[in-house]
């Protein structure tokens, strides 16, 4: 967007980057109430969950999921994965896989160290002392590492028995592998998980503003969100209640698999309601480079 001004009218964002885009003056302020589907959003997501900038909205969430602990069921039991502490177990030496991106692979370490929503904290908004502890905790896990992979390689390494546990995985990946007959599951450990969100923004100075708004309206609609929830690349939880209903009526098996078959607990957003989920944000008290450097050092250590 910054290198090609005027080329893009709307952009789907990973929500945590929105403040950076706003700082670079790339996004237009949005009014969610302008879109009729906003009234159909679950009450939990009809308010700011951490993405607004100075009280203003620049992006609207249309799908999300949790980064928690994904594991092979033939190697680990449900009770094993009750805490991230299992990752240090000698039986998992050389069996823990990571996605090669600090954003998805360091948040859980901070949660494990106690920087949780339950303690009133976001795992990415921590002091330098807490960040140093995160680094120490992360580095202590090195003997357990199987490798650092792109997402497709994580899937294949789960399949070929190279990795047994993947902190940063979640239902979005589990359901794909279960479709292939693999004994994998994911679980939100007691320390919690991290929310990844994908959202739509309008680029400042768009010459096709009406078309951009139509796209936003479509991505917020029940029809689009029901499709997004069950897309073949990765499944997702969606914030539009009517999309849940649509799935329950048209595709009840998927609604059940995604735990969007009922609005009452237990359902897909129960961990969120229980305050176990932290929103993935950019680091507040350190730079992106500092987190990325720790990650690079961990990989090379």
């Amino acid at each position: 967007m910054s290198q090609n001004p005027g080329v893009y009218d709307a952009v789907t964002t990973s929500c945590e980057y929105v403040p950076e885009y706003v700082k670079a003056d790339l996004l237009m302020e949005m009014d969610p109430t302008e879109y009729p589907a906003w009234n159909d959003y679950l009450p939990e997501f009809r308010k700011d969950i951490g993405y607004s900038v100075n009280g203003k909205v620049y992006t609207i969430l249309y799908e999300f999921g949790y980064l928690d602990l994904m594991y092979r069921q033939d190697r680990l039991s449900t009770s094993d994965v009750g805490s991230y502490a299992i990752l240090w177990d000698p039986s998992l030496k050389g069996k823990v896989g990571f996605q090669d991106w600090w954003g998805n692979s360091m948040g859980w370490v901070s949660l494990y160290n106690g920087n949780t929503p339950a303690n009133g904290k976001n795992p990415f908004e921590i002091s330098n002392a807490e960040f140093a502890k995160v680094k120490k905790t992360l580095f202590s896990l090195k003997p357990q590492v199987a490798g650092f992979y792109e997402l497709a390689a994580i899937f294949s390494n789960f399949a070929n028995d190279t990795i047994w546990a993947y902190p940063g995985g979640g239902d979005w990946a589990t359901l794909l592998l279960r479709d292939q007959g693999l004994p994998v599951a994911s679980s939100v450990p007691k320390e919690g998980g991290v929310l990844w969100g994908e959202a739509i923004s309008i680029v400042k100075g768009s010459k096709k503003l009406e078309a951009a708004k139509q796209l936003v309206a479509y991505l917020m609609s029940p029809d689009a969100q029901a499709k997004l929830a069950t897309k073949p690349s990765y499944s997702a939880i969606v914030p539009n209640k009517k999309a849940w209903t649509l799935l329950q009526n048209n595709d009840p098996s998927w609604a059940t698999r995604l735990q969007m078959n009922q609005f009452t607990d237990p359902c897909a957003i129960t961990p969120w309601r229980e305050n176990k989920i932290a929103v993935r944000l950019l680091p507040k008290n350190q730079t992106i480079e500092e987190w990325a450097n720790v990650w690079a050092e961990f990989k090379a250590s």
């Binding site: 990571f98 090669d100 590492v145 199987a146 490798g147 650092f148 992979y149 792109e150 390689a153 690079a296 990989k299 090379a300």
Partner: peptide, 9 residues
């Protein structure tokens, strides 16, 4: 990336 499994930077 593949041969080194990302562990050999």
């Amino acid at each position: 990336t593949f041969g080194g499994s990302g562990k050999r930077t």
